[in-house]
């Protein structure tokens, strides 16, 4: 028993001595990152009213490849189909810093589309349906429009629309101003915000994303806030870009916003950006777009 007592004291002494070594209190350890597997990334936007599809096809790269540049794919086979007779290959256009597969001659009377992307061993496919047409009316500009969530004074734009019943609808709104020397053409977007809980900020500070979850099938009067301006400053120069978007694009846009906001926050729960592709990641979005002169 006496020996045990000595062993314990000796052990404590050894621990004390060892703990004096330089890296004994090191608290970081390098570990292996998760295994990377290449995936096909497709971002495709189909403006069904204009018959325009714009696609970017690229690949993922390992998180360890910090000097990796945008890995565009230039020899993918991109095919757009509808549920009728459309079976259109979208050709590569040589663009290196923009949409690298485009076609502005899409003719379809259907609302349901599939996009297939084949490249090497990758087979990615996504489906999307065109949103309903919803027109805006009863525009009004109020110079003294109230304060936004940051407590800033804003001007306000009001308009109304009839939300289609029995389906989920999503919209995107951007307020534009024209240049004073060319007042009829929208030139640049303005800061846009809202206190309406059905709306939320889009990726930048220009676009509002709107969900009809709280007014499904009703006539909605929406109030958007823009930077504070007098009537004289902006008269005949305010325009609204109104997009009818899919639920998938809404989710994609929301998650992309959040992921970007959290990029530098090490304690935030990571956010997976929404994808509607099987066999790959990215978004296939079908949308409609309208422009209105507001004030």
């Amino acid at each position: 028993m006496q020996n045990l007592y000595k062993i314990i004291l000796f052990s404590l002494f050894v621990v004390f001595i060892i703990s004096c070594s330089e890296d004994f209190f090191s608290t970081t350890l390098e570990i292996d990152p998760p295994e990377h597997t290449d995936q096909l990334v497709t971002n495709a936007f189909l403006n069904i009213d204009e018959g325009l599809i714009e696609v970017v096809v690229s690949k993922t790269y390992s998180v360890a490849d910090v000097d990796q540049e945008f890995d565009l794919v230039d020899d993918a086979v991109v095919i757009l189909k509808d549920d009728q007779s459309l079976d259109q290959r979208i050709e590569y256009n040589g663009e290196e810093f923009g949409f690298n597969y485009t076609n502005d001659q899409i003719l379809s009377s259907s609302n349901n589309f599939d996009l297939e992307v084949n490249y090497a061993d990758f087979r990615a496919k996504a489906s999307a349906s065109a949103p309903c047409v919803v027109e805006l009316s009863e525009f009004e500009f109020i110079a003294d429009g109230g304060i936004d969530s940051d407590g800033e004074d804003r001007s306000r734009i009001e308009f109304s629309f009839d939300d289609p019943a029995d389906e989920e609808n999503y919209y995107a709104l951007t307020i534009f101003l024209s240049n004073a020397n060319n007042p009829t053409e929208p030139a640049f977007p303005t800061y846009t915000d809202t206190n309406d809980p059905s709306g939320s900020r889009g990726f930048d500070f220009h676009t509002l994303l709107i969900s009809d979850a709280s007014f499904n099938g009703e006539r909605k009067k929406f109030k958007a806030l823009m930077y504070r301006a007098t009537n004289e400053e902006v008269e005949n120069r305010v325009f609204a870009k109104w997009q009818m978007i899919t639920k998938e694009y809404f989710q994609y846009s929301k998650t992309l916003n959040i992921a970007s906001d959290l990029e530098d926050n090490p304690f935030a729960t990571p956010v997976q950006i929404f994808t509607n592709f099987d066999g790959g990641i990215g978004i296939f979005s079908v949308y409609r777009e309208r422009w209105y002169s507001v004030f």
């Binding site: 998760p34 990377h36 597997t37 390992s62 992309l256 990571p270 950006i273």
Partner: peptide, 8 residues
């Protein structure tokens, strides 16, 4: 943890 990066 992130396994890959890409351009959205």
């Amino acid at each position: 943890l992130a396994s890959s990066n890409y351009e959205s």
